[in-house]
Design a protein around this nucleic acid. Sequence first.
DNA 1: GCTTATGATAAGCAATGTCTTATGATTATG
DNA 2: CATAATCATAAGACATTGCTTATCATAAGC
Lengths: 105, 105
Amino acid sequence: MSYDYAAMIALADPTRRQVFELVAEQPRSVAELTRCLPVSQPAVSQHLKVLKDARLVHAEPRGASNIYHIDPHGLGEMRAWLDHIWGEALDAFRKEINDSREKER
Amino acid sequence: MSYDYAAMIALADPTRRQVFELVAEQPRSVAELTRCLPVSQPAVSQHLKVLKDARLVHAEPRGASNIYHIDPHGLGEMRAWLDHIWGEALDAFRKEINDSREKER
DNA sequence: GCTTATGATAAGCAATGTCTTATGATTATG
DNA sequence: CATAATCATAAGACATTGCTTATCATAAGC
């Protein structure tokens, strides 16, 4: 189970989450995204770069615009990792319950 | 679907992930955790505070020690949120594929 | 009781991250 | 062809974060 945590780190920032949610809702250009957000256009571009590197979005050049689309890969990897950890955590939790039961006897 | 992202933010830090993994493996005291990690005891305590607030671990005082255990709540909430977003993302992705098919006609 | 071990908190510092303005490159528009 | 629009990148300001050392409170062991 190897995972580079890029998607999780990317989504840990609130502004970046907003950018991602907007793109997930529908494909949008940088200009459109900037109009929806309380930060400057360069800030939006910087966030998009992080999201793109984490494979949460991908860009489609369209004339002078750059349309950003959702990319399922980043979320998929994150989900696989989380499922794995979740399984381990539940096992550990059950084991603890058992151990504490045994002690009571 | 409301989620405060505390678990995700907590696990976005590499040291904090290590602390969490160690606790998930088996319950451990702060001193034990510090011996396993390349940072000072106060650093470990600070990370544990963040993990505890995110309901990823919980503390069990035992004499002068403080044994930290895994707490499934934080991961569970994060998992529920991620499943939700994952569903939305897949819907959006499928919709895009459809839209681009229609344009080709 | 005195010493030792444990762990939480405070204060300060260095590194990192997020934002801004400035700028240049590319494309559409009149 | 000149102007306007779009967007990425660079440079710098500012805030946040993760770490350290110092310290205090509590509990265990002699």
